[in-house]
Computed example of a mutant assay.
Amino acid sequence: MAIVLGDNRYGKAENRLVRVDRDGDEHRITDLTVSVSLSGDLSDTHLTGANDKVLATDTQKNTVFAFARDGIGEIEDFGLRLARHFVGTQKSIRTARVRLEEHPWQRLTVGGKPAHHSFARAGTSTRTASVTYDGAQAWVIGGVQDLTVLNSTGSEFWGFPRDHYTTLAETKDRVLATTVSATWRFSGTEVGWAAAHGTALAALLDAFGGTHSLSLQQSLYAMGQRVLEEVPEICEVRLSLPNKHHFLVDLAPFGVDNPGEVFHAADRPYGLIEGTVLRDDAPPAGPAWS
């Protein structure tokens, strides 16, 4: 039996990058976490320890910061620039992946007017992107994470199998809450990234709020379907939806009723619903999801 080296990659993870655009009196903040991952002709460093084909992860970090000096723009475009650079300048590197998270800030209001250079962390979710380039083709994945949503009614769960271990009661009215992690694959790289992200995010929220849900799985499909309907450049959506359970608290021992008003919000364990919604003519994903 032979032992061989399988798939491998390496890179510099979670580079924290903040750029302040100072054009004019009103400054702008771009706050990113950027992770680089490279793969290619790297067998020697694993098998013999030779490093002549290994671009140091410190160099990768420095490249991220140096490229930011020329401006960042949309995070997808910044990722494409970096990925193409690593493959185009390093003979041993065949595929580069750049993952990005954008952390939003909002301008403060001082004295009733928008401040020129004062900000507070904003938003309840994080915009994400992942760019993969193999020297010939690029794949772009956008997304959002930590998007917490809740329907206080309009959700049911009943008709499920019951066995010796089932204790859960059926319900025709429950609180449905989840923290959405969604990623979507674009069919090309010539996209208005900001507009696509905004439309996809609005589609997720609209579908979640507008679906009378008989299961979180039904909501997942409705959310993915709506994104594909609203953004033609997106060909595939992957969703991970933890069911953030809200259990009605029994107040009867205290002589108090509870007409669906007081809940215990449990953080774990939780149901985890995951799924993919895609066009039936979606182009191959290549290494985009790997």
Rank of each mutant, 00 (worst) to 15 (best):
V4F: 12
P253M: 11
V64L: 07
L241N: 02
P259T: 05
A129W: 04
T89F: 00
R84Q: 13
N51P: 00
M223Q: 10
G198N: 12
E76D: 05
V144C: 11
L241V: 06
H117T: 07
V34M: 00
W193N: 04
A177I: 02
H197I: 05
A182N: 09
A13D: 14
S213D: 10
H197C: 02
P259S: 07
W184I: 05
D134L: 04
N8A: 12
R107K: 13
A202G: 10
R162L: 09
V149A: 00
Q90N: 14
R16G: 09
F247P: 02
N258Q: 09
A266W: 11
L147D: 02
S240P: 03
V4S: 11
H117L: 04
G142A: 11
F157L: 09
V87Y: 00
E261N: 14
W184C: 03
W158Q: 12
A195I: 10
F78G: 03
A136L: 08
A288N: 07
Q137N: 15
T179N: 08
K53A: 13
T199S: 14
A169C: 09
D44C: 06
D7P: 14
D280R: 13
V20S: 08
I29Q: 01
L176R: 00
G40M: 02
L55A: 06
A196L: 06
V256K: 11
V249G: 14
T95G: 01
G192Y: 04
S240F: 03
T109L: 15
A129I: 04
